[in-house]
Design a protein around this nucleic acid. Structure first.
Lengths: 348, 348
DNA sequence: TTGAAAGCGCTAACAA
DNA sequence: TTGTTAGCGCTTTCAA
């Protein structure tokens, strides 16, 4: 009744023989292309199943000049940040395409790896996430002719699609919140001076200050490196040097949490003595009760994948190089003191 | 002097013409194969560079029957667990091969996706991470003839390479520590009853109890689902129902942290009233000061990739299907009370 | 509706 | 050392 079920892979030739048709017909049947009789198609599909035949990807790629694969280039495998974007990407791609993943941590790789992926035609397009990238790199990659979607990257190139988290207004919101709660002497821990995200966040700080007619002394603006350990160093120095601040706004959660832990370790109550607000909304922020600006990283990934798939499907479509900006929103938790009992009511 | 730098991709034909050699020579030169004069090789390489020529992956795959790509199949994108293994894998693969990533969250995918990856010959081998997998699936995948390395998976098949975290002794160590600190009434929050990791951890619990001639009443053994929310539910019910425990050992950090937060929220001091110990060593555990069994997930990824690359390089090598077991180690932090000041010395 | 045959771009065996 | 050529396994015209 049933033909022998081979555990080894059958070749396409086997299917042709079994059904008594040509390779072209098998191709048409298996790829759901028109030009095959309905019953014949059924027979081919059944036979392929039976014989355990699966077409080889490499041969299809070569012939179709398409890989059904997108590349994802990450600068870094930082748990909080990366994971959520990645989840978004995988979520959108699942069932739609494969995902070839690459890490461009080392200097030099930031250009080399995405370039090779595309030049070797391993992928039909790229999601590119790297802060170190220059307009010149972007332009060279663009010349490869494959669609690219950047994430959180200032390419300065309106022809390259990009999705980013909005920094300025989100940051302003955090500052408004802090000042609105009555804090008088907030310290700001920024990112690196030349980091564009950080610059935008600072613009937001200035905007909020201007609205409320306030200023911050330069000594209360500390340059961080987006890393907890460094943030603690500059912050603790500031504490020792100057008048006690009553709040901190750090430009990312990693720094905020490190400072939060340092404060508690050194006998400061948070938010009682010093309020802390972060930026990003990494998973840890929830456990720590950190008030922070939650950024829609998952959506970021979904949308990037969506834009890329659209561009691959039709490179000339309207708005193939769209720029998407996603707003963060303030997530009020414990460390800003908005929910806190008043000092007098505290159990010492 | 310099030939015109084309921004568009050149074909191999261009290189052949430019240097005045055949396609075979270009192939040999570019792939570092013997049989080309040194200066000619230089000229080919220079010309390829100049013309911006990059060989196409698909054609190489087809011709060599090799993809220089490994597949990684994950059941889920859980931040703590997954990330570290993934980092280990990427770390080892960087420069050695590409990584095709797939998520097999949906039921049915756990077999379908790895099977397709291999059957379509998209990858030369697979790192497979999925708890739902059955011996039958393993055997069918094995029949595809490509090397597979499983992570934390009980295949029951000594012919399939695997790397796992040792659960039993690591778990025993945690219990010994807790009992050694003098806790009298520990509650155990296990994983799902049919989960093999959980079973092994339980064996460790029993081992430690036996050594110390102790027992735990059945009511103090709670079945968790490895999820924080569920763990909190069963634990809080246990608190209301029975005599107050003085310690909790949860079979993963997610549950431990959820319980820890719940305890503090409900006025229990940790470790003053109830000590908490977890298992895994996810990043959050550090911030929470959670005493836990740290598992070498990063190494797990590195070793899995290493085993796979070896097996791909030489499928018949000695020990191509090696089983590697990595021991966890107890990381003592605050929540177990080992470092705690005595109750009398506490500031209320 | 079906088949024959020409590529897709590369590698490797065989000749020179 | 170098070139010629036959595949690798698929898709896709073009004919029948």
């Amino acid at each position: 009744m049933t033909a022998k079920r081979s555990t080894v892979r059958a070749t396409r030739e086997d299917v042709c023989r079994a059904v008594g048709v040509s390779s072209a017909t098998v191709s048409r049947a298996l790829n759901n292309k028109p030009g095959v009789g309905a019953e014949l198609r059924e027979k081919v599909i059944a036979s392929a199943r039976e014989l355990n035949y699966v077409p080889q990807a490499a041969a299809r790629h070569l012939s179709r000049a398409k890989t059904d694969t997108i590349g994802v280039v990450f600068q870094d495998l930082n748990a909080g940040w990366f994971m959520n974007i990645f989840r978004g990407i995988m979520n959108r791609c699942s069932g739609a395409c494969h995902v070839l993943n690459t890490l461009s941590t080392r200097a030099g790789d930031e250009f080399e790896l995405p370039h090779r992926m595309l030049a070797e035609r391993r992928v039909d397009g790229l999601i590119w996430l790297d802060q170190r990238v220059t307009p010149r790199m972007v332009s060279k990659i663009k010349d490869l002719g494959a669609p690219v979607v950047t994430i959180q990257m200032k390419t300065g190139d309106r022809q390259v699609a990009g999705v980013s988290i909005e920094n300025c207004e989100s940051s302003a919101e955090a500052v408004r919140h802090l000042l609105g709660l009555g804090y008088r002497r907030p310290v700001i821990v920024t990112g690196p001076r030349d980091n564009s995200d950080s610059k935008q966040k600072w613009l937001g700080v200035e905007r909020a200050l201007a609205e409320l007619n306030r200023t911050i002394p330069p000594a209360d603006v500390l340059e961080g490196h987006h890393m907890g350990s460094h943030a603690v160093r500059v912050f603790s120095e500031r504490i020792k040097a100057g008048p006690k601040p009553d709040a901190v706004f750090a430009f990312n959660d990693e720094m905020a949490i490190a400072i939060l832990l340092w404060l508690r370790e050194h006998g400061f109550r948070v938010p009682g003595d010093v309020a802390v607000v972060g930026f990003d909304g990494i998973p840890e922020s929830k456990n720590m009760g950190l008030t922070t600006v939650e950024t829609p990283l998952f959506d970021c990934g979904v949308i990037a994948a969506q834009l890329l798939l659209e561009a691959i499907a039709d490179p000339f479509r309207e708005g193939a190089a769209r720029q998407v900006l996603l707003k963060g929103h303030l997530c009020v938790r414990e460390t800003c003191g908005a929910h806190a009992v008043k000092p007098a009511e505290r159990t010492s």
